[in-house]
Design a protein around this nucleic acid. Structure first.
Length: 423
RNA sequence: GGAGAAAUGGCAGAGUGGUCGAAUGCGGCGGUCUUGAAAACCGUUGAAGGUCAAACUUCCGGGGGUUCGAAUCCCUCUUUCUCCGCCA
């Protein structure tokens, strides 16, 4: 959620920048400014009426105290009309505020100046590439065939017990997953992150705070009986820890990392993109979240980006870093780097991480503030990134490391798995 | 799941209809004293809206109600604690 004062004071600039996201904000912003002016006007009128009500109530109290009941009762009668009109004003104000906040919620975050213009993922900007794309034998298999051959991931069983997109990991497959989780968590710990085990369900306020609601409602599993949402990423509970919290400047940076299962309905996905591990309804991920001072958030974003790169390097995976264009950038993000690894048998790049700076967009929604040195309270910046999402990493590792003898485990993981080969 | 109690400022804790945004203590900040520190003493110390600044308004877990007037009374939700039941 953008701050209304910022919109007001930089109207033209906000409209121009939102156009980079292919969002035409001019009408909406006009509406917001009008509503906010009306809000102020109405509030002022209401305040004046309340002030005189308060004054009269005090007088009545005084009169009763001094035994002047007759005069008090006279004054009491006068309050009725005032009460009625202030009730009406207050209802009016309520409805203005509601309309206003519904309008403000529709505005996406302003993109960072470095975000390239563009309509779709085709216009994203590749900013870094590393590693050699492996050339496999002709009989190389995609990961879903390897998974079956070595009996490490069972998609059919998942379909039977739950449904499509909920695979079973078995034997060395399960151990491999566990090794990756431990590896990612230990790396994060070494970088100074605090390990957190969050709840996997969140309430409506939390889903709203990080921006999953209202616009991505259909993407989350919803437990209607208790009005909980299954987390699509641990970003949601991790960031909402600080909902309605005022930090001290010395608290920065806050660095939390969590492993969690993630749940996504992925309505409308189909075809080769959802084959095997490419897109699941339940998957595992280690997420890193930072809360930073506004002056330092972009510096931090670069550090987080470099950290994710270091993980992929250690896993010996060829990867590239993409700066998302305006059209591909999420509603809440100001700048996002996507990481893609090459999956050699599918011959495609798979997105395995997304590192974003939300600036104060989430913070404004959830009232995450800090007290600056000058004593003023202002919004903090939130950032997060996957470090990393497991399924596509597993897919790429299975495919890229397949040999005649079996699948080689990257050196860095061997102490975690306890085996060097899946065969 | 059943019964009961509770929720007040950073923390502890008073306040059961008006002068209460709220006593007191602790903590924080500033100062006096001191070579420095501690102690002691003095002052100060919530948030949001609004304003050039003020005035003013709102906020005592959330929402609603009664009343001229609510931290205080009523309804409701949430959370915490105690007891009983069930249970990994």
């Amino acid at each position: 959620m953008l701050q209304i004062n910022l919109i007001k004071n930089n109207k033209a600039e906000v409209i121009r920048l939102l156009a980079v996201k292919n969002f035409d904000a001019s009408d909406l912003i006009e509406k917001i400014i009008q509503l906010d002016d009306r809000r102020k006007e109405t509030k002022k009128m209401l305040d004046e009426q309340l002030a005189s009500s308060n004054k009269m109530a005090k007088e009545i109290g005084q009169l009763f105290k001094t035994g002047n009941a007759q005069e008090a009762n006279l004054l009491k009668e006068q309050t009725a009309a005032l009460k009625q009109s202030s009730k009406k004003l207050s209802e009016e104000l309520g409805s203005i505020v509601k309309t206003l906040s519904e309008a403000v919620i529709e505005l996406p975050n302003i993109p960072h100046p470095s975000v390239p213009e563009g309509k779709s993922e085709k216009d994203n900007e590749m900013i870094f590439e590393e590693g050699t794309v492996p050339v496999l034998e002709n009989n190389a298999k995609p990961h879903w065939e390897l998974a079956k051959e070595y009996d490490i991931i069972d998609f059919d069983l998942g379909s039977k017990v739950t449904g499509a997109g909920f695979p079973f990991y078995k034997g060395k497959g399960a151990r491999f997953q566990r090794a990756l989780i431990n590896f990612f968590l230990n790396e994060a710990l070494e970088r100074g992150y605090t390990e957190i085990q969050p709840p996997l369900f969140v309430n409506e306020d939390s889903a709203y705070g990080t921006g999953q609601l209202p616009d991505k409602e259909g993407q989350m599993y919803h437990i209607t009986e208790d009005n909980f949402y299954l987390i699509p990423t641990s970003e949601v509970p991790l960031t909402n820890i600080y909902r309605q919290v005022t930090l001290k400047e010395g608290d920065f940076p806050i660095m939390n990392a969590a492993y969690s299962s993630c749940f996504r309905r992925e309505a409308g996905s189909y075809g080769k993109d959802v084959r095997g591990l490419n897109r699941l309804h339940q998957f595992d991920k280690v997420e890193i979240v930072q809360i930073q001072h506004p002056d330092k958030s972009y510096e931090t974003l670069e550090v987080m980006k470099d950290y994710v790169a270091s993980l992929l390097r250690k896993l010996e995976l060829p990867f590239r870093i993409i700066r998302l264009c305006g059209g591909d950038l999420s509603f809440t993000s100001a700048l996002t780097y996507d990481f893609e690894v090459y999956s050699a048998a599918q011959r495609m790049w798979l997105e395995v991480s997304s590192v974003s700076n939300f600036e104060s967009f989430q913070a404004n929604r959830m009232k995450l503030r800090f007290k600056a040195k000058d004593g003023k309270t202002q919004l903090a910046h939130t950032l997060n990134g996957s470090a990393l999402a497991l399924p596509r990493i597993v897919a790429a590792l299975l495919e890229n490391n397949q040999t005649f003898d079996g699948i080689k485990i990257p050196r860095v993981l061997q102490s975690y798995t306890g085996f060097e080969l899946i065969n």
